[in-house]
């Protein structure tokens, strides 16, 4: 046993990388279909969108960049599917510079190709605007003044879906997909707290613990935390995306990491006890 612990203590980290890689690759190739349940914050996200009357306008704030796509794209696609099934009119925007092309791709895949919706009438991509919280506050006064033209360069006054949209009072819900700053925290502080508008968030797992107090205090009506949140949401939307496909790999990787943490601690304390 002593020799085993010494081996663990001096284990090359690249061996751990191989184990983690196998724990991820194998379940992706050969799915295990591990069961998991839908949690309350995810159900809250689904129900908040579900309660919006059909045909209403919603603000879809996609504050992310390519670095967080595996976590946030599955929930972006699933949210689009739920909103489009309800025939909601989607006003999309991004406060991250590299966000608009990703939003455009998701809208094209879902709204245009899958649901055959018309750009400008059923959905619009307002693109990126620098200014972070200032943009949010400015939208409270006037959305058309803050975004005078959309991502494609068309004046907002010439876009049918934007007719009658002046500020947050003219949208029924804000759906925020957030990778960090600016994101959910700022939407809560600058918009939800001031204008008392319904807000749901899908965020990276790293930021989820910070946002749970907002959900507990009902400032967020629902919360999707990372890929696990996306997977649960895909169950509710009845969609098979990377969220659900990735859950087996996620679980196996966690088991491997847990085992290595356990072995590492056992080896450390065992060798410390023997004064090695």
């Amino acid at each position: 046993m002593q020799k085993f612990f010494e081996f663990i203590n001096q284990l090359d980290r690249r061996i751990i990388f191989i184990f983690v890689a196998l724990a991820i690759i194998l379940p992706l190739l050969f799915p295990l279909n591990i069961k998991f349940t839908v949690t309350e914050p995810v159900r809250g996200f689904y129900e908040a969108i579900d309660k919006v009357p059909n045909g209403s306008k919603v603000l879809f704030a996609c504050d992310f960049e390519p670095g967080s796509l595996p976590e946030l794209y599955p929930m972006t696609y699933a949210a689009l599917e739920q909103m489009l099934k309800k025939d909601l009119k989607i006003i999309a925007l991004s406060l991250w510079p590299a966000g608009p092309p990703l939003v455009e791709k998701a809208l094209t895949d879902m709204a245009q190709n899958e649901f055959k919706r018309k750009y400008g009438v059923d959905y619009v991509n307002l693109g990126f605007k620098e200014g972070r919280e200032v943009v949010m506050v400015s939208m409270g006064s006037s959305i058309p003044n803050t975004f005078p033209q959309d991502y494609r360069g068309t004046k907002v006054s010439q876009i049918p879906i934007m007719q009658g949209v002046n500020n947050f009072k003219d949208v029924k819900l804000i759906v925020n997909i957030s990778a960090g700053y600016p994101g959910t925290k700022e939407w809560v502080q600058q918009v939800q707290a001031r204008y008392n508008i319904g807000l749901v968030s899908g965020c990276t797992a790293v930021s989820a613990p910070e946002y749970y107090p907002y959900y507990q205090s009902k400032q967020l009506l629902g919360l999707l935390g990372g890929m696990k949140g996306a997977a649960e949401y895909e169950i509710l939307v009845n969609r098979i995306g990377l969220g659900r496909r990735g859950m087996d790999a996620q679980s196996m990787a966690h088991v491997i990491i847990f085992l290595f943490i356990l072995l590492g601690n056992l080896a450390y304390f065992s060798l410390k006890k023997k004064g090695t």
């Binding site: 890689a21 992706l28 976590e71 797992a205 790293v206 996620q250 966690h254």
Partner: peptide
């Protein structure tokens, strides 16, 4: 928070592996 961070990093790796394979 640490648990969530591990989950986030694994998700990124899953995304890349899903792309490669």
């Amino acid at each position: 928070s640490f648990g969530y961070t591990v989950m986030a990093r694994m998700s990124l790796l899953i995304g890349r592996m899903d792309f490669l394979f």
